[in-house]
Write a protein that binds this DNA or RNA. Structure first.
Length: 495
RNA sequence: GGGGAUAUCGUCUAGAGGUUAGGACGAGGGAUUUUCAGUCCUUAAGCCGGGGUUCGAUUCCCCGUAUCCCUACCA
């Protein structure tokens, strides 16, 4: 039997990395075992502020960026569409009615106010919260309907609730955690169809998973505690539940569900900062899954497909380690063809207005020289911006020079003759390349009877205004003769 | 309040009765060197507690504790 899995995001904004991780697990399972990866848009919550259609594009982009493109989804269609739940409303109504007819669900006329008051009271009394099932009986329901009818002056709206079995147990078979038994008496009569005609998660998912032939449901662990209700709905229809898999949650450093206050959580934020898709994917996969006793952490996509299995999913939550992600991204940056990194960094420079959009020829020339020199220093692409700053902005001593750098290296007693000689030497060079520059400065050090380091450091500060950066001669070479001389002169004159 | 899940270095994890408890990030030290970074070498750091089961428990069972999740006409 082919595996069919689904990723079911809600359009509430740019996807959370935790959601993306489940998408990746789904995708990997299908690539590994064969079958179809479905994406289905769960847009049944129309509450203003929670329904954000703009988020749909981010969802699509994130999947494309990671390379985990669904086999069937609303973008390309498929045999089980539509893949947007708001386009399947008649279906949910039909199936909800079916449950009502079979006695597995019932209409509930209770007002939100009544429900809210009930919950308040239960909480204040310290007793378990939940619906009191007053509409579950024909008598109670009719009473409530009449009451609401007289209040409203028209036929009152109703929801459809699941008639949860009053006794017995519901067993959830989780492939990672094993069988979990829930006492039905602790389960509420879940609302399945809302007054606005939209289904809740439980109905929509049960119906869609069944109709779409979903064999494995992989979703976050936050769904585990309500899994009994989910399975109860499926049981009520008389269907076989799909295999369930609940990968552990991703937590922030304070051990709470990862959220904005911990730092970036949304996919687009990571992309903006310059995380590479393969790094993001590799890192996310490893949060909650392990290849076993293999002592590695860097895997290519084919390697992950080869190794992926549900058994490797861990059972305990994982804390999102931003430092490790950075490290991994740096590894991938250094493994990438430099040309690719150059291109991506140029985009960053454009975004932060260090170069024009489009960039001029000379800007491009400098960027192509400089960026490869900075690659080994980068962990995220956006770091190129501060690194490139002294190269793309006009430095006029002492403006733009780091104070501490100046204090330390431009105060040496031989600074003036040193800069003077460098200006002379650099002006006369017939070839402008790193090794020629290095040779010339080495002989200057000999000539002035100075240690090489004693020449290097003041020069670096005079030319770039910083103490850190690429190898000095690479930097000077990239910067070009004109700018280098200009800066040396400006320092010499001002001292 | 009710229900569920989980528990190995600070963090991500390997381990599936007998191991010097392994790897990675981060931290410390060293080497390279032209600064930073990178690279290489290296050090410290862990089985939540208590009962069982067993010749023997990090590992299996129970209890406790802690943490997280659910408890909405949100997903």
């Amino acid at each position: 039997m082919p595996v069919r899995v689904r990723y079911a995001p809600s359009p509430t904004g740019s996807p959370h990395v935790g959601n993306l991780r489940t998408a990746i697990y789904n995708w990997l399972l299908v690539r590994k075992l064969g079958g179809q990866f479905i994406a289905r848009l769960e847009d049944t919550d129309r509450t203003p502020g929670r329904y954000m259609p703009e988020g749909i594009w981010d969802i699509e982009e994130s999947l494309r960026y990671l390379g985990t493109i669904p086999d069937e989804w609303w973008v390309s269609g498929g045999t089980s569409g539509p893949y947007i739940q708001s386009e399947r409303l008649p279906l949910y109504k039909e199936y909800a009615d079916r449950l009502v007819s079979s006695g597995h669900a019932y209409r509930c006329y209770c007002s939100r106010e009544r429900l809210e008051a009930m919950r308040q009271e239960q909480q204040s009394k310290g007793i378990p919260t939940g619906y009191d099932r007053c509409c579950r009986t024909d008598v109670g329901r009719e009473e409530m309907r009449i009451k609401r009818l007289s209040e409203l002056g028209h036929e009152p709206p109703f929801v459809i609730r699941l008639a949860m079995p009053l006794e017995g147990q519901t067993v959830v078979h989780d492939l990672v955690k094993g069988d979990i038994v829930y006492d039905n008496r602790t389960q509420d009569d879940q609302v399945l169809l809302k007054t606005d005609g939209f289904p809740t998660y439980f109905l929509a998912c049960a119906v869609d998973d069944h109709l779409m032939g979903v064999t494995h449901v992989i979703r976050g662990d936050d769904w585990l505690s309500s899994a009994a209700k989910f399975v109860a709905v499926i049981n009520a229809f008389g269907w076989d539940p799909p295999a369930l898999v609940h990968p552990p949650l991703i937590l922030g450093p304070d051990r709470k569900k990862l959220s904005k206050r911990h730092g970036s959580t949304q996919f687009t934020e990571f992309v903006d900062q310059g995380y590479l898709p393969e790094a993001l994917l590799n890192f996310l996969v490893l949060l909650g899954w392990s290849a076993g006793d293999e002592n590695r952490e860097l895997f290519t996509l084919p390697e992950l497909i080869e190794r992926f299995s549900l058994e490797g999913i861990s059972e305990h939550p994982a804390i999102f380690d931003y430092d490790k992600l950075k490290w991994m991204n740096g590894m991938y940056i250094r493994q990438s063809p430099p040309g690719r990194i150059v291109g991506l960094c140029i985009q960053q420079l454009q975004k932060y207005k260090l170069i024009g959009d489009p960039p001029s020829e000379s800007e491009l020339d400098l960027a192509r020289k400089l960026i490869p020199l900075e690659i080994e220093r980068m962990k995220v692409l956006s770091e190129i911006v501060p690194m490139a700053e002294p190269f793309f902005t006009e430095l006029k001593f002492p403006d733009g020079y780091e104070e501490k750098a100046v204090a330390k290296w431009l105060t040496v007693e031989y600074i003036k003759p040193l800069l003077q000689r460098e200006i002379e030497i650099f002006s006369g060079l017939s070839v402008w390349d790193p090794s020629t520059l290095e040779d010339s400065v080495r002989s200057l050090a000999d000539e002035m009877e100075l240690k090489f380091a004693g020449v290097i450091h003041p020069t670096r500060v005079a030319v770039t205004g910083r103490t850190v950066g690429p190898g000095l001669f690479d930097a000077i070479w990239a910067l070009g003769r004109e700018t280098t001389l200009q800066r040396l002169n400006s320092v010499l004159e001002a001292l």
